[in-house]
Design a protein around this nucleic acid. Structure first.
Lengths: 339, 339
DNA sequence: GTTAGCACTCTTACCTATCGAGTGCTAATT
DNA sequence: AATTAGCACTCGATAGGTAAGAGTGCTAAC
């Protein structure tokens, strides 16, 4: 329903606006190489595009600016396959060149590189702890009444919780318990850990009739009570470089949202596989409705486990960002697959 | 050298400016309860105070604003002993009411409470890892060629590093090494760990002439290469609520500094015991020269180990903040002492 | 169907006048 | 001699007014 000429003009407007953040006028468009017709013609086409809701005026005699519908159309139909610059490729792959064996290290580097390359804010959601398997469980006593439980996963993730040991439990009981659990539970996915613990418990109780039960319930509390969020954020300050965030109150309201890790986790987690794009009002969270959010997923051992996201103004460099995210997510998946 | 009347006026000006962030005129001062003389008199005194450098005008016919010298004098000579509101006290002590056995938990709560109470940015520097002692050393193998070293301190701090195991080292060697090290090194302060490792090594080598040496050097690298920063920050967005930071570029430059944890650690670490106050230009870091930084120290087992700080505009509520920091630092020291 | 021409709109920058808060100085008061 | 009332003056903030420039929509010509 859009003519080729309209498509072309829409594309030029959006491309241009992404770079300059300024309204685009008919004269400016006519000067573009690809454009062979006059400003007057362009004005007519623009009036149509505006009527259809793809572009807007900031005031009655201004140039045009893409609407959210315009961006959506652009993203859905006008994105050219983008090939990353050598530098972009180099930066991304360099993350994986040193042999980083710990998940955290990879993610922290990635978050950094992404935000540096794009000048947007990057957010990476760590793997669901529950999608990984138990490598080792360990108890370290700090004092007669306190201890730390340390849990290592096959991804190299180390999780620790401290808890106080109730008086009636002997240290030896606790140790016995941990030994048994280690024997039985190593290799079990963390998701199933809770259930399996429950199951094993009944067997154990028959053999050691001490206060193991209480020790167990404490241990369980320590390990499962608070679920860690593992949200990694990079380049938060970058948003302030964007002209659409020259107003402190805007920045403030956005930042107070980003700070809420659990909310961010929720927003990002709910995405299906592949690249997802939310533009402006499409974002559920009100404070993010001046932004666009692009997410990709990465997987570990075949299962989808985490999300990489870039948050920027609606006027994002969509094609470049998508290519970057694709490259990174593939590299991450590959790397984790090797482990 | 300052008359009582001048002291009084200076105090009123600063107290008022701290609350309103607006220049104070002679008329406004004369309306204060404590003030018994006329605006004209006050103007004369203000002219003197300005000549001496304690206050400034924002333009030739404006009210007066405290200068940095003024704040310094205020802090050094005019601070009244401040008694915290019931709410302030309650909030601070509530942090310590649940039995939190892990250092991180206490600090994270504290950072939160401090920034919420003050609307400034709070920064807490964790204990020097090196001031604590080793509780347990642990190696967990992830794959034949990678492993994680986990180090638990007596403060309940868990530190982990991953490293790759060079081909020529057998897993059994590494385990042997760790067992030996655990026997020999538990209870040793982390500061001395490096030296002691070196010493023990020579003995070990005599007994196990395998490739233990290489394993050791790898382990050493894993444990000592990157020193963790452990800087905890709360309420970064609070700075945007202060009228002196209504300009995005200011906020941006400040934030990019705060983000640099190692720099922050350096800035905070270099303080001697007790409350320290740096006002504006007194701060070494250029980007912080519109701010005041108030730091307090807390101790663990008698030794000074960490710093609590509040960063705000020069126009801070000095007396309240000092009282809050004092209370918190004492509470922290007490709590950690019990462990 | 396309484009040149033109009147019209709106933003921006700049100038001007006015108002009010606050000062410094002088002279009168205590 | 110290304090204060009075007053001229300064400067920032606000509002109105004008001119320039960018861009549009429409009409008429190509």
């Amino acid at each position: 329903m859009l003519t080729n000429r309209q498509l072309l003009i829409l594309q030029v407007i959006i491309d241009e606006f992404i770079q300059t953040a300024q309204p685009i006028g008919s004269r400016a468009i006519s000067k573009k190489e690809q454009i062979t017709f006059s400003p007057a013609t362009i004005r007519n086409e623009m009036a149509d595009l505006e009527e259809m809701g793809f572009i807007e005026k900031t005031h009655s005699s201004s140039g045009r600016v893409p609407s959210e519908k315009g961006y959506r159309f652009y993203v859905d139909h006008l994105l050219l396959p983008f090939h990353l610059s050598a530098k972009d490729q180099r930066e991304i792959t360099s993350v994986f060149e040193q042999d980083l064996v710990e998940f955290e290290q990879v993610v922290q580097k990635s978050v950094r590189v992404l935000s540096d390359l794009t000048n947007y804010t990057s957010i990476i959601l760590g793997p669901e702890v529950y999608a990984t398997t138990l490598k080792q469980l360990q108890i370290v006593h700090l004092s007669p009444s306190t201890a730390i439980a340390i849990l290592v996963t096959n991804t190299g993730h180390v999780e620790h919780r401290s808890f106080s040991i109730p008086a009636q439990i002997k240290a030896s009981d606790l140790e016995k318990l941990v030994n048994i659990l280690n024997e039985k539970l190593v290799g079990i996915p963390i998701v199933e850990l809770h259930d399996r613990l429950q199951k094993e418990l009944s067997l154990i109780i028959n053999q050691y009739v001490n206060d193991v039960e209480i020790a167990f319930s404490y241990l369980k509390g320590a390990l499962f009570d608070q679920q860690p969020t593992n949200v990694y954020i990079g380049g938060i300050t970058n948003m302030m470089l964007q002209p659409e965030f020259s107003d402190v109150t805007k920045v403030h309201s956005l930042y107070s949202i980003i700070e809420k890790e659990d909310l961010m986790a929720k927003v990002l987690r709910s995405n299906q596989q592949g690249i997802q794009i939310s533009i402006g009002q499409e974002n559920k969270v009100h404070e993010m409705q001046d932004c666009s959010l692009i997410t990709a997923t990465y997987s570990l051992a075949g299962e989808q486990v985490g999300t990489i996201a870039l948050l920027g103004p609606k006027r994002m460099e969509y094609s470049r960002v998508i290519s970057l995210l694709n490259l990174l997510s593939n590299q991450m998946s590959d790397t984790f697959h090797q482990w």
